[in-house]
Simulated scan of single mutants.
Amino acid sequence: MYDRILVATDGSDNAQRASRQALDLARKYGAELHAVYVIETRTGYDNAIVDPDTVRQNLREDGEQALGDIETEGPPDVSVVTSIREGIPYEELLAYVEDREIDLVVVGAKGRSAFKTILLGSTTEELLRAGQVPVLVVDSTGG
């Protein structure tokens, strides 16, 4: 049913729950799991106060940690491919879906972003709107 599953992570609690769900699905279907962390390029801070290069490096380190956690948590029979991308999260994820012929995207209902909507995170909402691929949204209780 699924050959390639993408889990989008930002290291948040919801993303960690989504990662566990994605790992379970990958094991169940014998699918390759793609774990992607996107460094947000839209700035939500004052460039005169905070050095953008420092912020980008800190976010890259956060991404490496989040992706490393998924690799460590995954069972040995699940192939995990990791990627750190830069840009607008939903655009980068949709491009990855198309490039890698992803069959299913697993995301948390909300992430860490300061760009929030009332019911869902903006990235999750945009992925659902795109209708490019089925999207499994994991809520704060993990289901």
Rank of each mutant, 00 (worst) to 15 (best):
D3E: 15
D3I: 09
D3T: 15
A8L: 08
T9Y: 05
D10T: 04
G11T: 01
N14W: 14
Q21A: 15
A22R: 06
L25V: 12
L25C: 10
K28R: 15
K28V: 12
L33Y: 05
L33A: 05
H34S: 06
A35T: 01
V36Q: 00
Y37E: 00
V38F: 00
I39P: 00
E40S: 02
T41V: 05
R42S: 14
T43E: 15
N47G: 11
A48G: 14
P52S: 06
T54N: 15
T54S: 15
Q57P: 10
E61Q: 13
E61W: 09
D62S: 14
L67E: 00
D69I: 11
I70E: 01
E73T: 11
G74V: 02
P75N: 03
P75L: 05
V78P: 02
V81D: 09
T82H: 00
S83V: 06
I88H: 14
E91C: 07
E92Y: 01
L94D: 08
L94C: 07
A95C: 11
Y96A: 03
D99H: 09
E101D: 12
I102M: 04
I102G: 02
G108A: 03
G111Y: 05
R112E: 09
F115I: 13
F115D: 11
T117V: 10
I118Y: 12
L120A: 06
L120G: 08
T123I: 07
T123C: 05
E125F: 13
L127D: 02
R129C: 09
V133G: 04
V133K: 03
P134G: 07
V135L: 05
V138I: 08
G142P: 01
G143S: 15
